[in-house]
Amino acid sequence: MKLNLKIWRQGGKYKGELVNYQLDGVNEHMSFLEMLDVLNEELVSKKEEPVAFEHDCREGICGTCSLVINGRPHGPWKATTTCQLHMREYKDGDTIVIEPFRAKAFPVIKDLVVDRSSFDRIIQAGGYISVSTGQAQDGNAIPVGKDTAASAMNAAECIGCGACAAACPNGSAMLFTGAKVSHLARLPQGRPEAAKRVQAMVAQHDTEGFGNCTNIGACEAECPKGISLDNIALMNREYTAASFTERPVTVGAEGA
């Protein structure tokens, strides 16, 4: 099939604009990114600069690939990353608009590549259980119900791609933050730090310039892993509870 591509180019000679490309010989068995590979091979053979886009595992798990395809993060398929989207979705003559993930906290680096290090900083703020190597007790010492483990896993499946923030009109990353808060808060191992964790992570989320949640739900609809809005609700509950129980620790209160 033959496609009309409108691709966001930014950096070098491009100030930031949609550039038109015609691509012939696209096969329905190709993945979306393989289609872009073919375009880039063609550009390189014409000694033009290829389109920069990020990708790695191409199995839908590493969270590196992104792209807003015809207005939708990761394209039209439900619960599917861009790398798993296949060209049988499209037909000869289609026009496809390809843009980077957009959010205030995701500055564009080049073309379709954005900087998502804000997500790392949200995790660094408290998205972990403070257990050093060697401190663990036996894995079966604390029973974790099958359903509890499953609900923690549902949240833990987040791949940190940023589609939630790109989909949100407020540029909010509450689904990402809520998924991590809820993954750890649901497990008995995560409870001792739960209150401090949610406060620190939400504060960092706001510092990074992500917007607030106004219950639109675009994040859940576009999430390639189907992470549920319930996680935002649980985060809000944890956050509210923490505001009653957590007091700032005064200097010297710890240790000594």
Partner: peptide
């Protein structure tokens, strides 16, 4: 043991093991 303590949600039996 280490991974369980970190919060890795391994598959469980109904008993919680």
């Amino acid at each position: 043991d280490q991974c369980v303590a970190q919060g890795v949600p391994f598959a469980r039996e109904y008993s919680g093991t």
